[in-house]
């Protein structure tokens, strides 16, 4: 086998990164020990899920979607309504909520089959607005703007022979959501490296070209929207139990734009980029509390500067920086540039 073919067949080694992530997740609630910071950690884990879900559609499939808050809302409300009004078990309600969000995602994909670029962006934004309006006006089910109160965290898990795992404290809730986010990351990472990922990227790059290779664009865009919506719904399952209350205002279109910002700031079309974006944009407002009333202005300014000077996001800026540092070292050792 030639060296060129051997290069093409080399597989990336991922288990050290996976172990590293496990260690970081395990240590975080100990490093950030106060209930306040642990709460932020739970929010961060949910945001990571949301950013990863949106990235599948925008970053890998190249479809502008501004409706992600709608799927997040469906996940949260379906879980809570089934739990509170129909007495379902939390985990069962969660599965139903994920499926419901995924199905609605397939519906939205019907639009994506016909609309492109900015037009799809507006249509998906319209979807988020419709969901928000339904939450406000369908009072018999959603309790409207008054909201649903007294929502309990996920019930404890009792496994024979093991101590009971309760999610009443935020450290274990963080472990639960972050653990799920890590699993979703690994599965999505497998997916985007597989032929399905090749197909989605082909659609992102040039749909007509992809069709000339046998790709049914409408079908694979539907797949992408459906999976993305289901993951956003999954994040939504854990939100109500964490906050304890559920009001429509938590799912306004601003949330959609925040998720978009996470994806773009971190680096869309990569797996780790949106994770970085979600972490940065979750913690940045907290770190900026010292600025008092100017906090949101500084936040907005930081976003603008990142997009202006790091068009490929934080991840790409980091890669360029390290490549430059390595490049200068290499040229010193080899005594010449390119």
């Amino acid at each position: 086998m030639s060296r060129r073919v051997a290069d093409a067949l080399s597989r990336p080694v991922r288990w050290p990164a996976f172990l590293g992530a496990l260690v970081v997740i395990a240590l975080l609630p100990m490093v950030l020990g106060t209930p306040y910071w642990r709460g932020i950690l739970v929010v961060c884990a949910m945001n990571v899920l949301l950013a990863m879900s949106l990235n599948l559609v925008i970053g890998y499939t190249g479809q502008l979607s501004l409706g992600q808050s709608g799927f997040f809302a469906i996940g949260a409300y379906v879980t809570t309504v089934l739990l509170k009004s129909y007495g379902w078990n939390f985990w069962l309600a969660g599965v139903a909520a994920v499926l419901a969000a995924g199905l609605v995602g397939l519906l939205l994909a019907a639009f994506a089959a016909r609309l492109r670029g900015h037009y799809l962006g507006i249509a998906s934004l319209g979807f988020a607005v419709i969901v928000y309006q339904i939450l406000i006006n369908w009072e018999s089910v959603t309790k409207g703007v008054r909201g649903i109160y007294g929502i309990m965290p996920p019930p404890p898990i009792r496994l024979p022979g093991l101590p009971e795992i309760s999610f009443g404290n935020q450290a274990t809730l963080f472990y639960l959501v972050a653990g799920i986010a890590l699993c979703v990351y690994v599965i999505l990472d497998n997916l985007v490296r597989s032929p399905i990922g090749e197909t989605l990227r082909a659609i992102r790059e040039d749909e007509i070209s992809a069709a000339s290779l046998g790709v049914n664009g409408a079908r694979w865009k539907a797949f992408s929207f459906g999976v993305s919506a289901a993951i956003a719904g999954l994040a939504g399952c854990f939100y109500p139990g964490f906050v304890g209350t559920l009001v429509p205002d938590a799912f306004g279109i601003v949330e959609s734009f925040t998720m978009l910002a996470m994806v773009i700031v971190g680096g869309m079309g990569t797996m780790i980029g949106p994770v970085i974006g979600a972490v940065v944009l979750t913690f940045l407002p907290e770190v900026l509390r010292g600025f008092g009333d100017f906090r949101l202005i500084v936040y907005g300014l930081a976003l603008t500067l990142v997009v202006l000077f790091m068009p490929g996001g934080i991840l790409q800026a980091w890669q360029i920086l390290t490549a430059r540092l390595r490049g200068t070292e290499a040229s010193e050792s080899t005594g010449g540039g390119r």
Binding site: A8, P195, E198, T199, R201, A202, L213, G214, V215
Partner: peptide
Amino acid sequence: LDNVLAGFHI
């Protein structure tokens, strides 16, 4: 290579 790999879709 990724361009060509996309061609194996079917």
